[in-house]
Design a protein around this nucleic acid. Sequence first.
DNA 1: ATCATATGTACGTTATAACGCACAAGGCAA
DNA 2: TTGCCTTGTGCGTTATAACGTACATATGAT
Lengths: 185, 185
Amino acid sequence: MESDELTLKLRDVRAASGLSLSKVAELTGVSKAMLGQIERGESSPTIATLWKIAKGFQLPLSALIGTAAMRDTADTDVFSTVTFPGSIEVKIVFPFDPALGAETFHVELSPNQSHESPAHAAGVTEEVFVLSGVLEILRADKWIPLQAGQGLRFAADLPHGYRAGDQGAAFLNMHHYSQSAENLE
Amino acid sequence: MESDELTLKLRDVRAASGLSLSKVAELTGVSKAMLGQIERGESSPTIATLWKIAKGFQLPLSALIGTAAMRDTADTDVFSTVTFPGSIEVKIVFPFDPALGAETFHVELSPNQSHESPAHAAGVTEEVFVLSGVLEILRADKWIPLQAGQGLRFAADLPHGYRAGDQGAAFLNMHHYSQSAENLE
DNA sequence: ATCATATGTACGTTATAACGCACAAGGCAA
DNA sequence: TTGCCTTGTGCGTTATAACGTACATATGAT
């Protein structure tokens, strides 16, 4: 555990693609010698070259940067129900995982029920995916209507609200915590 | 296709923290001269030093790396369809956002259709939420059945597969590219 | 005003990332 | 076998990341 936690997954990515060092070199604009050194950990690349590599593979940068191990959720804990008191009914689909910084809820609103949410901490992003019914989302003083099968992603650092249509609505609500630095003196 | 510029958000992060270059230097082990150059884009750091900085701030690496354009999704681009070659049909619900390290797809399988997926790069977590029908997920040589309304979260660095029931299946598929740092020196 | 401390930038040196080329090992064909 | 190509790695040079120190300006106190 004392060794470098920062592992680059270039070798894995390249193995998955089945390409040779030379091919990758001409594809990314990075010399194959460099690519080789990066793969065996003899060199720690600059972000500029990492970016070239990612672009060449058409991958997000994060696909090349490996961090510590992942824990995966037990197979069985599916859909444990928790109802928030005095609020809307919420079921936990995917509990919060600090490694992901994400959690997912299943929310049901009865017909015409609405729910206001204050501004969350900066850096929190919400995603809403409507499962059934019609849902309207208040964002920047505008109600945005969503049909079943539609989704919306928005920064949650502003007050926002949810409102169901005449037939109620069910939707998934994902929260992404980007972990921003909030230090006061 | 403009080459997406790579922007480092060190300046923003440091501004948010209210710390001086000197403080950050002694906090991260990176010289303040370097930090200054990185902030004004006069130097493109190696991942090693980026990692030091992230550790000093106790932030995930992704908090420092930003691509130029992407903020929250426009209200309109919902459900653009992209078909993966030689694979199943997939609609993009939430496109990849480097700040979140996450993307969400909408997948439909015809009755009894199956799809095998090779192991992704380590650190990738998948979440599956079944919208309709019955979906079975192959994981560690076991088929796990999921009904509509059920979900499963698992590490995607192993080969895995999807199989629809007699009536087909529709599900959401979220990919999380790990961005966390839970490390010590 | 002068002194003191802290900010961020500029300079000179060292460490190393990145390059191009050359080399050794492993197919594959004739 | 003999070429001939491709694989990945080693070597020497150049470009630049990273360092420590010194500097100019700014803020604050006396």
